[in-house]
Computed example of a mutant assay.
Amino acid sequence: MKNNIWWGEFTFNVQQQQSWSVGERAILLKRKATEWNLWNIESDEEGDDIIVSDGSAFNLDDKVAAGRFLEQMTTDKIKVYPLLADRTFIARPSSPLTILAGEKTQLFISTPLWFYAETFPGAKPLVDLPFWRPSDSWFGRSTIDGQLCYAKYTTAKTDIDELDLHPHRATTSIMLINNHNKALTINRINVPVNYLHLYSDSKNQLWTSRLTIEVKDDSADVELIIEKKFPSDFDALTFISKPRVLSEHGKLIRRISNLFG
């Protein structure tokens, strides 16, 4: 299967295995009568397409299962979802971004996805793994005031037509509004992907909820709004999965030092 739809409901016979692979990177599941086995084959190189197959291309004879999940009797189906990261992401543009006073701009930032699988019916979690685990990073004013995040470099595109989309990544649209009398220079931006919903467009590319971030005057706080609607230049989107952390009001207040660097 090579059509970018790698999530959904999958059927397994007893002793059957299936894999989700991106180049040499693969996650394999095998059903037995009373347990599920997991193999997590990692790679440093990112591929382009996720291929769902029987996993016969991967020799498991010399690999120990990364997990064994026991049940009295396994069912013949599992559900697979893409999920966003379980922490916020520090996006580092390849060069500093400066938004002039009184201006606004839209950025597009992509982040890696997690592979999540659960039993069906029953919804018992089996797997929650990133396709590529990002590096850990601390973001904040000090070792006390801040948070543990993931980090990545990004080109931070401003034109939707220039995006390089991949099925193992999701793209976040961020509207940045600088209602300050000074220019705002951004070397890093802390993107709260763990608060965002995940959607798919008609080409099965994955998008998160849209963010609006407004900087006002000399306030130390920044208003961050999780938008419920997408602008008209977006394709129609289908809901895929919920956020890791639910925000009741769709609005977050962050100290500017914990959002921009």
Rank of each mutant, 00 (worst) to 15 (best):
residue 1 M to K: 10
residue 3 N to A: 05
residue 9 E to C: 13
residue 16 Q to S: 02
residue 17 Q to L: 03
residue 18 Q to L: 10
residue 18 Q to C: 07
residue 19 S to T: 01
residue 19 S to A: 05
residue 20 W to K: 05
residue 21 S to E: 07
residue 21 S to G: 01
residue 21 S to T: 00
residue 22 V to A: 07
residue 25 R to G: 00
residue 27 I to H: 01
residue 28 L to S: 01
residue 29 L to C: 06
residue 34 T to G: 11
residue 39 W to S: 07
residue 40 N to I: 05
residue 40 N to T: 06
residue 40 N to D: 11
residue 44 D to F: 14
residue 50 I to W: 05
residue 50 I to S: 00
residue 54 D to E: 06
residue 55 G to D: 02
residue 55 G to Q: 02
residue 56 S to I: 09
residue 56 S to Q: 13
residue 57 A to Q: 12
residue 57 A to M: 08
residue 58 F to K: 11
residue 61 D to K: 09
residue 61 D to T: 01
residue 62 D to R: 14
residue 64 V to H: 09
residue 64 V to L: 13
residue 65 A to C: 12
residue 66 A to M: 05
residue 67 G to W: 04
residue 67 G to L: 04
residue 67 G to K: 04
residue 68 R to P: 10
residue 71 E to V: 09
residue 72 Q to P: 07
residue 74 T to S: 02
residue 76 D to A: 12
residue 76 D to H: 07
residue 81 Y to H: 06
residue 83 L to F: 15
residue 85 A to Q: 10
residue 87 R to H: 09
residue 87 R to T: 10
residue 88 T to P: 13
residue 93 P to T: 01
residue 93 P to W: 05
residue 94 S to N: 12
residue 95 S to H: 15
residue 98 T to F: 01
residue 99 I to S: 05
residue 100 L to G: 08
residue 101 A to W: 03
residue 102 G to M: 03
residue 104 K to D: 14
residue 105 T to E: 15
residue 106 Q to Y: 12
residue 107 L to K: 11
residue 107 L to R: 13
residue 108 F to M: 06
residue 110 S to T: 09
residue 110 S to Y: 11
residue 111 T to H: 14
residue 112 P to N: 09
residue 112 P to T: 07
residue 113 L to Q: 06
residue 114 W to M: 12
residue 116 Y to W: 03
residue 118 E to M: 00
residue 119 T to W: 01
residue 123 A to H: 11
residue 127 V to Y: 10
residue 128 D to A: 11
residue 133 R to F: 11
residue 135 S to Y: 15
residue 137 S to W: 13
residue 138 W to V: 10
residue 140 G to Q: 02
residue 142 S to T: 02
residue 144 I to T: 15
residue 148 L to Q: 14
residue 150 Y to N: 03
residue 150 Y to R: 06
residue 151 A to D: 12
residue 152 K to I: 15
residue 152 K to N: 11
residue 152 K to W: 09
residue 154 T to W: 00
residue 155 T to M: 15
residue 156 A to I: 04
residue 158 T to I: 07
residue 159 D to T: 08
residue 162 E to V: 04
residue 164 D to W: 08
residue 166 H to I: 10
residue 167 P to K: 03
residue 169 R to F: 06
residue 170 A to G: 02
residue 170 A to Q: 03
residue 173 S to Q: 11
residue 175 M to A: 11
residue 177 I to S: 09
residue 185 T to N: 03
residue 189 I to M: 12
residue 193 V to P: 10
residue 194 N to F: 14
residue 197 H to G: 08
residue 198 L to P: 09
residue 199 Y to V: 02
residue 200 S to W: 08
residue 200 S to D: 07
residue 201 D to Y: 03
residue 203 K to R: 15
residue 203 K to P: 10
residue 204 N to M: 04
residue 206 L to Q: 04
residue 207 W to Q: 00
residue 209 S to F: 05
residue 209 S to Q: 01
residue 212 T to H: 07
residue 217 D to I: 05
residue 218 D to I: 12
residue 219 S to F: 12
residue 219 S to Q: 14
residue 219 S to D: 13
residue 220 A to S: 00
residue 220 A to Y: 02
residue 222 V to G: 01
residue 222 V to A: 06
residue 224 L to I: 00
residue 227 E to K: 01
residue 228 K to E: 00
residue 232 S to Q: 15
residue 232 S to R: 15
residue 238 T to C: 03
residue 241 S to V: 05
residue 242 K to S: 04
residue 246 L to Q: 14
residue 250 G to S: 00
residue 253 I to V: 15
residue 255 R to V: 09
residue 257 S to I: 06
residue 258 N to Y: 05
residue 259 L to Q: 04
